[in-house]
């Protein structure tokens, strides 16, 4: 599998700040991977994401060094127009990324901007609407939608541009637990159906460990941990960086001291239930 994202020694400092927001950051992401990025607020996650989709350095200027490559081309040398078609960005607040008066028109927004022909646009808009299961919302106005629905609409608008890499910035922060779960299932389905790569910033790790291939932890603008969710969460350092280690993992870590925990290092409630059920039988 090819590399969809390569970040080499990225450094970035905003003009009005003395401290660097991102320091010597390295990351490689393969096509089709789901990578979760965690870390305390203000650790540079948002800056990093903006460096991947080109808002840095194209919209925000500052002290920039290192290299970010998406699908083989340097972000610095690509236009926002090209980047918009390879990197999709779902921002934290869906409200502020829906522009038009009807859902359907908004899903088409990016394609209209790119000058895509009407028939082709219609096909891609319908496809994105179908993928997210929002057919019944197509003619609604944004203010008639719930937060969860707005998020789906915003994601449809991103997917209509058929990006290879999709960035989700704290996608569940405004959602209730059930809708949040649905979003996670959606990510897993889209990865399967479209082969899209996802980079997800998220605090609620217990939701995402199910679908994540990798967990990257950031602190102070740099990468401190990188591995499978199992390795990172069961490692000794995870708690120290202020990320929310899921309860299932914590319980096993506590029990491990008394040699009571299963040795498989189970990540989800389902895994633990299956293991304990078998053990009891």
């Amino acid at each position: 599998m090819g590399r969809i994202l390569e970040i080499q020694r990225l450094n970035f400092r905003y003009p009005d700040s003395r401290k660097k927001a991102v320091v010597d950051f390295d990351l490689e992401v393969s096509e089709g991977e789901v990578v979760v990025l965690a870390g305390p607020s203000g650790c540079g996650k948002s800056t990093l994401l903006r460096a991947v989709n080109g808002l840095i350095p194209h919209m925000y200027t500052g002290e920039y060094s290192g290299e970010v490559k998406v699908a083989g081309s340097s972000v610095k040398d690509s236009s926002m127009r090209d980047l918009a078609q390879t990197v999709g960005f779902l921002f934290q607040n869906p409200e502020n990324q829906i522009f038009m008066f009807t859902v359907e028109r908004d899903v088409a927004f990016g394609l209209e901007n790119l000058g895509v022909e009407r028939e082709e646009m219609r096909r891609r808009v319908d496809e994105a609407i179908r993928l997210l299961g929002i057919e019944d919302l197509a003619q609604r106005a944004p203010h008639e939608l719930s937060d969860g629905q707005k998020q789906r609409v915003a994601l449809a608008g991103v997917l209509a541009m058929s990006p290879k890499l999709v960035i989700l910035d704290e996608p569940t922060s405004l959602l209730d637990p059930r809708t949040a779960m649905e979003l996670v299932d959606l990510v897993s389905r889209l990865r399967k159906e479209l082969g899209t790569t996802f980079v997800v910033v998220e605090h609620r790790l217990e939701l995402l460990v199910k679908v994540a291939d990798r967990l990257v932890v950031m602190s102070g603008g740099t990468k401190v941990l990188d591995g499978t969710p199992r390795d990172v969460l069961f490692g000794d350092e995870a708690e120290g960086y202020g990320i929310s280690v899921p309860a299932i993992t914590r319980v096993q870590k506590m029990l491990a001291k008394d040699r009571l925990a299963p040795t498989e290092r189970l990540l989800t409630a389902e895994e633990l239930a299956a293991r304990l059920g078998r053990g009891a039988a």
Binding site: L55, Q97, N113
Partner: peptide, 10 residues
């Protein structure tokens, strides 16, 4: 935030 989202959608 709107400006960021606009840029990101070409």
């Amino acid at each position: 935030e709107l400006a960021e989202a606009m840029e990101s959608r070409a």
